[in-house]
Computed example of a mutant assay.
Amino acid sequence: MKPKVFLEFVEIKSLIASVLPFVLGSLYAIYNYHQVHLGYLALFFVASSLFHMATNANDNYQDFLHAPRDADNQEFLEETNVVGVNQISIGQARTITFGLAGVSLVLGLWLVTRTGLPLLWMGLYSYAVGYFYAGGPKPISTGPFGEFFSGFTMGFMIFWIAVFINTYDVTTITWLSSFQVLVAAGLAIFAISNIMLANNICDMAEDIALGRHTILYYLGKPVMLRVFAWSYVAGYLCLVAAVWLGVLPPLSLLTLVSAIPVYKNTRLFLQKQVKRETFILAIKNATIICLSFAVFMGLGLLV
Rank of each mutant, 00 (worst) to 15 (best):
Y131M: 04
I201D: 04
S126H: 02
R94I: 14
F98I: 13
K138L: 12
Y125K: 09
K138I: 14
A184L: 02
F156L: 09
M204Y: 14
I192R: 01
G123W: 09
F190P: 00
M196I: 01
L111G: 00
G91T: 00
F152Y: 08
S193D: 09
S141P: 10
L197D: 00
N81A: 09
V106I: 14
T97H: 05
F190E: 00
T113I: 02
I165C: 09
G108Q: 02
A128V: 14
Q180H: 12
V129Y: 11
G130E: 04
A198V: 11
I158Q: 11
A162D: 03
N166F: 04
A162I: 05
M157A: 00
A101F: 01
T113G: 08
Q92C: 08
I192P: 02
A93S: 14
W110H: 13
G91F: 00
K138E: 10
I161W: 07
L182E: 05
G84L: 09
L176Q: 10
I88G: 02
G84I: 12
P144E: 13
L182R: 04
W110A: 15
S141H: 06
F149Y: 10
F98T: 07
S178F: 14
E147K: 00
I208M: 14
F148D: 13
T115D: 02
T142N: 14
L176P: 01
P118L: 05
N194C: 08
F132G: 13
A134E: 03
S150G: 12
D207E: 10
T80A: 11
A198E: 11
F190T: 09
S104T: 08
L117Q: 12
F179I: 05
T97V: 13
G99I: 10
I96P: 01
I140S: 05
M196E: 01
F98M: 15
G135L: 11
A93T: 03
A128S: 09
S126R: 04
